[in-house]
Design a protein around this nucleic acid. Sequence first.
RNA 1: CGGGCUGUAGCAUAAUGGUAGUGUGCACGCUUCGGGUGCGUGUGGUCCGGGUUCGAUUCCCGGCAGCCCGACCA
Length: 432
Amino acid sequence: MRQSLFFSKTRREAPRDEVAKNAQLLIRAGYVHKEMAGVYDFLPLGLRTLKKIENIIREEMNAIGGQEVLLSSLQDPAPWQASGRWDDTVMDVWFKTRLHHGEAFHQGSELGLANTHEEPMVRMMKHHIASHKDLPQYVYQFQTKFRNEVRAKSGVMRTREFVMKDLYSFSRDEREFRAFYEQVAAAYLKVFARCGLGAWTFRTFASGGSFSKFSDEFQTVCEAGEDVIYVDEEKRIAVNEEVYRDEILREIGLEKARLQKKKAVEVGNIFPLGTKYSTALGLTYKNEEGENVPVYMGSYGIGPARVMGTIAERYADEKGLVWPLSVAPFALHLVRLGEEEGVRECADALYTRLQKGGMEVLYDDRPHLHAGEKLSDSDLLGIPCRLVVGNRGIADGVVEWVERQTGSVRQLPIEEAASLLLDPDAGVMPKI
RNA sequence: CGGGCUGUAGCAUAAUGGUAGUGUGCACGCUUCGGGUGCGUGUGGUCCGGGUUCGAUUCCCGGCAGCCCGACCA
């Protein structure tokens, strides 16, 4: 992509109404636009990163047998009434609206805007599960959730509208469920590791909310987090403050003395649902004896935008964003300094070759901008690798390769630069 | 939902009961050209409603919006 044609621009100053580092940087760098409190638009850069994260999640969900679906955002109250969760006093984050009813708009049937999907998912599955031969099933989606939070905050970390990956498991019994639950837990750790959060992310014992007695959260240690957890670094597990009690520590085999108190972001959460919703909504199957048995369920969520915000928080430095290669909007930022014919030709040629070689390149071909401005912009954008083409290097027959995170600089011979960058074994580009 | 704070140009800020200033951005010209070059010209603004007042962006009341702390968080 040529930056001269790219529509989002950087800005020098953060808007006054953002305090969270993730939002300040994402807005300054042109990744997102704030629509209103707790509601953000994704611009090309932000969308690219969001989609990278989604794809990592998608691959890991597919790898454990997940099948992608897309349920609707408009929801029929009926299944929610059956489970008792339509009531605003039971679930207080509902956005509700009504079907149009001619002139008398307000008399139309009530509808909900999805804040989660257990009930419609269960009702839908009733049409597809009848026998033990139909189980297990694992379905997931990336779907917009609307939650009328009393207080949106922390930039993209807690918003009123966001895309969530939610996976639902349908198993014959607890044993079959539990085996899959552990597979998901392992897949989640892979997701966060691939997103660059592995070192700071812990499977965390937590309360089960309205679903079940306990659940497992995936918490990334981060100062911007809203949660407090106690981490056992060696065992790589943690316990949420909300269930930090002696008998629970004993139950999960953690020693108080080895635990460190940390602030953390909940980047994922997995719940055993048991037969709560299958019973309420009548999702049963016939076992081999011909008896009707409620399906045993679990639900599993990750918010890609929250993951993105957490990566921004953890990796950013005083100059701007820094993305791990796996989630970066572009792999390489090709920065041209100068307008001389030789510089232009060299940079254009490199851009063409790298593009053809399949590399995602953002090419700063903007004319007549000062070096400082281009380099500052490049720092702010946080693309992990930078190739600088300028007069200085061309005179010596080299271009500069810079790693954003460490600032390390290497000279690459002009003729070989493209092939070195495109060759994963050359050891120039970092491994994903 | 309780408490606190804030609304001035695209963005960031200053000031003021009497014609609203600066930086930045944007446009144009010259200059400069490897870490936001310098100069000039232009562009553009007091959240909404009511009250007090000769006069309100400023003071008062209400609304709306935003941020922070707490509570809440399927």
